[in-house]
């Protein structure tokens, strides 16, 4: 072959480009194009059939809409459940990692919710929190017959019920993630720390936690993104966004604006706002992870 000679690194780059092409095509086709379209539609009024160009005023108007601010506030309020959705699995993973009796069974139990559709989990949670549901049965069974909760029916507590359900759905994934992280921890590090005089807490604080930091960051990103973009099915079956707007998050607002009110242009605009928020969370976290190397 008399073909032009490429250096080794040129060849490697070429191979890289070739291998990346199919993925690139998919990303552009399935994500890039729709995002571009969404940007376009966000400047229009679109009822699903006819599109009318409005221009940048759609954006200024949107920010005057109180529904948007309510949804954003609900999203922000739900963030307080993120530490719980990380802390609880961390505690469970550390306990399971001590190889407590029956840890394999517990591991399966904690992972089970992950394998179940969020719609089903939402239905179960709805039954749990309902006026005549499991929670009240439990409260009455332990003798507090005077206390009756109605978390989903109450504007001040519905969002908390949603948050608790969200934590429950995240436990499996995050526990698994942390268990994987713990499995990669060299046990002799812990032994060295024990000999250096550290007790359980210090070992956790100075050895286990730093080792898991990468895993915790990943879990954080996944949890926040799930919180912003995967609650729809829970909300749909548990509260339908109510009572009032108490559990309407950005995601649910997009659905309602688009499919209930037929304002697809505004929905696209809301979608872009949500996209920007999750994008920022993701980028900030990737930076943090990257800089830790």
């Amino acid at each position: 072959m008399k073909a032009r000679r490429l250096t080794l690194s040129q060849r490697r780059q070429l191979a890289g480009v070739v291998f990346a092409l199919p993925a690139l095509a998919l990303v552009i086709g399935l994500i890039g194009v729709p995002i571009g379209q969404a940007v376009y539609y966000s400047f229009t009024q679109w009822d699903g059939i006819t599109t009318t160009w409005i221009g940048p005023s759609t954006w200024s108007q949107a920010f005057h809409n109180s529904d948007l601010w309510t949804a954003l506030k609900n999203n922000a309020a739900l963030l307080i459940w993120v530490p719980v959705a990380l802390g609880l699995p961390l505690a469970i993973a550390v306990l399971l990692h001590q190889r407590v009796a029956g840890w394999k069974i517990f591991r399966s139990i904690y992972f089970l919710p992950t394998a179940i559709s969020w719609v089903v989990l939402g239905l179960v949670a709805e039954r749990f929190f309902a006026y005549q549901g499991t929670l009240n049965s439990i409260i009455h069974a332990i003798g507090l017959s005077g206390v009756t909760t109605n978390m989903l029916g109450n504007e001040s507590t519905a969002l908390s019920a949603l948050g608790i359900t969200f934590v429950f759905t995240m436990i499996g994934t995050n526990t698994m993630l942390f268990l994987t992280g713990l499995a990669t921890l060299d046990p002799s590090l812990e032994e060295a720390a024990r000999i250096d005089g550290a007790g359980r807490w210090r070992i956790f604080r100075h050895i286990t936690l730093p080792h898991l930091s990468r895993f915790i960051q990943l879990a954080f990103v996944m949890t926040v993104i799930a919180l912003f973009s995967a609650l729809f099915s829970l909300i749909f079956v548990m509260t339908g966004g109510g009572p009032g707007y108490a559990t309407t998050t950005m995601e649910f607002l997009i659905y309602q604006t688009g499919f209930s009110q037929g304002q697809f242009g505004t929905a696209a605009l809301y979608g872009l706002i949500l996209f920007a928020i999750t994008g920022v969370v993701g980028i900030v976290q990737l930076r943090l992870i990257g800089s830790d190397l």
Partner: peptide
């Protein structure tokens, strides 16, 4: 007596240095 209270120092075969 727990390892932390024995006051012995050990050099591990793989060194077991704290990586972070």
């Amino acid at each position: 007596v727990l390892p932390k209270d024995r006051d012995v120092a050990m050099v591990f075969q793989n060194y077991a240095l704290y990586p972070h």
